[in-house]
């Protein structure tokens, strides 16, 4: 008998025995404890900002119409030389004057691993939204915005719309009907990468980005 069958048989036998003993399968638990008081988007984004600040996430509030110019300012302030963008990014042209190079993530990782790991200073990605209670960005990497954009470059700049804020992860997944189906990869990101493995001393920027800049767009 193969391992699969053996394991399932053992489990099923125990289950059947329980049912034979008069055990009933309980209903799914109630999730009332996950519910939250209703809050406005402004309140939620304030909470988000407070939480992000605690883990060194840099939140920059930007009115929609100033988005492009403020991105320019960020690039300048952070002295970013090589910037990674999605092929669908609307800003390709506007940045080119500021930088040494704008790279577009448009070919499979295998063909340019070294460059991605060594040459890129920063990447800009979109986000699906934010979670207020924990100060969390939600990302669904895609064909045009692959997974490593938010991971390998030392600076990750994420664009978040204030309107896309949910109180908790639980609200977020229900709001977006995630149970219907998930992408190959979905991510919650709460701050730049960090570790406390050396005697509990917090150190930022271990394997992922050292800086996380959230451009919070107010509409």
């Amino acid at each position: 008998m193969n391992a699969r069958q053996a394991i399932l048989d053992k489990l099923q036998q125990s289950s059947l025995k329980r049912i034979g003993d008069g055990d009933v399968i309980p209903d799914r638990p109630g999730f009332q404890v996950m519910q939250r008081e209703r809050k406005s988007n402004a309140q939620l984004s304030q909470q988000f900002e407070n939480m992000m600040a605690k883990v060194k996430g840099e939140v920059i509030r930007v009115p929609q119409e100033e988005l492009e110019s403020r991105l320019n300012a960020i690039i300048e302030a952070k002295a970013i030389k090589t910037l990674l963008l999605s092929p669908e990014s609307p800003y390709k042209a506007s940045f080119s004057g500021l930088l040494d190079e704008v790279r577009i993530y448009d070919k499979a990782i295998e063909s340019w691993k070294e460059a991605l790991f060594n040459d890129i200073d920063a990447a800009i990605t979109s986000t699906l939204g934010g979670i207020a209670e924990t100060g969390t960005l939600v990302l669904w990497p895609s064909v045009s915005e692959p997974r490593l954009m938010s991971l390998v470059p030392p600076i990750h700049i994420a664009i978040l719309y204030e309107s896309q804020m949910q109180p908790t992860f639980w609200h977020f997944m229900h709001h977006h009907n995630w149970s219907e189906g998930m992408p190959t990869n979905a991510l919650l990101i709460s701050g730049p990468s960090k570790t406390a493995d050396i005697e509990q001393t917090l150190a930022y920027g271990v394997h992922g980005p050292k800086e996380l800049v959230i451009v919070l767009v107010e509409e």
Binding site: D23, P26, D27, G30, F31, Q32
Partner: peptide
């Protein structure tokens, strides 16, 4: 015999919170 004994009979978190 109720075996999954820790599950309250009415798993209503609200009443438990109270």
């Amino acid at each position: 015999m109720p075996v999954h004994h820790f599950i309250p009979e009415e798993p209503l978190v609200e009443s438990l919170t109270d």
